[in-house]
Simulated assay, not measured.
Amino acid sequence: MNGGPIGIFDSGVGGLSVWRQVVHCLPSESTFYVADQAHVPYGHRSADEIQSYCLAIADHLVRQGCKAIVVACNTASAVALEPLRDRFPSLPILGLEPAVKPAVQLTRSGVVGVMATPATFQGQLYRATVGRTASAVQVVEQVCTGLADLVEQGDLEGPHCDAVLQGFLAPMLAAGADTIVLGCTHYPFVIEAIRRLVGPSMAVLDPAPAVAKHLSDVLRQADLLAPPGAEAEHRFFTSADPASFDRAVARLVGAQCSSAALMWRSGPELCQR
């Protein structure tokens, strides 16, 4: 299994913010990225829907020989991580949770802002993290409806993007937050715009580098690392339009690819075409 790829999936292009950190941290590892753009965004969907999509994608990744899976979506991690681990108990499966703990360690004002989707905020994973690590600070939860859609559309800068971001940032700034947590993998693609709007004194946390480091540690402990110098292959799949996705990959992470389509057939089962 050492030569198998790392499976990474998200509802759309947001998980590419995790993918690029994995590739940077583990340059010898091959990857298999799935964007479920037919159902993006996950943030407003029911837990049952999200679990169904995630289990189908994970089944597909396992059939492709993936040696580990990264759920590169905070919403999916919040509601589907444990069902995925129950289905594949011997497979390393990593998820994401908002970086509340490091934010608590960084804050000087005692106020931390978290930008995320409703499903992430309602998930047991997020609630447990806040209860365990943030009892001594005020956590301002900001639902960012539509922000993932902007990233999917490539609207990453300019007056419209700034106006949307300012609407989300204002309540956290008014509450005195000096640290902001990006609780969705789409949001790091507008991190420079956020930093420009909030100023240099605000810490803005992207959890993707820590996820890549943790993945490296997990693979090393399981003796699943690819041999140093192995030639990595990166494959991309989408459940929507491959040409549009290829343009997004080039725009967001600078990688040139020719993705294939994954279509939904009877039930939630994925098939390649």
Rank of each mutant, 00 (worst) to 15 (best):
A119D: 07
L205V: 10
A210Q: 07
H39C: 02
L224A: 10
P200W: 13
G12I: 02
C144K: 01
E269N: 12
L84N: 04
D36Q: 07
V218M: 13
S46D: 09
F9N: 04
D48A: 14
G123Y: 02
S239I: 00
V164K: 15
V198L: 08
R20P: 12
C54H: 06
P89A: 07
I50D: 05
F32D: 02
G158I: 06
P227C: 09
V139W: 02
P98A: 11
I69G: 07
P209H: 07
A35W: 05
G254K: 04
V143H: 04
A232S: 14
V22W: 13
E157S: 15
V139M: 03
N74H: 10
D36P: 04
V164L: 14
S259F: 06
A136P: 04
D217M: 13
T185F: 09
N2M: 13
A68F: 05
V112E: 03
A119T: 12
D223E: 14
Q138I: 04
M202V: 09
A116T: 02
H44F: 09
S28A: 15
R127K: 15
H44T: 15
S28N: 11
V139P: 02
G183F: 08
S244V: 12
E269V: 13
T185K: 08
L106A: 09
Y126T: 10
R108D: 00
A136I: 05
L81R: 00
N74S: 06
R247C: 10
P98N: 09
D246C: 13
R85E: 04
V70K: 12
M172I: 04
Q105T: 11
T238Q: 00
P228L: 10
Q21R: 15
Q21A: 14
A148S: 14
D48E: 15
V23H: 13
G154T: 07
D241M: 05
H234G: 08
A68Q: 03
G12S: 03
G14D: 04
K67P: 03
E192S: 12
S216F: 11
S266E: 15
Q138A: 09
Y126G: 08
A58I: 01
A38E: 07
S259E: 08
Q51I: 15
A38R: 08
V253W: 05
F237V: 02
S17D: 00
D48T: 12
A80P: 00
D162W: 08
M202A: 05
S11D: 00
Q138W: 01
S135F: 11
C144A: 00
D86P: 03
L106Q: 09
Q221M: 13
E29F: 12
L106K: 09
Y126N: 12
A99P: 06
M1L: 09
T31N: 00
R127A: 15
C184Q: 06
A175Y: 03
G7N: 07
A174G: 00
R132C: 04
L215D: 08
G15R: 03
Q105H: 11
S52G: 14
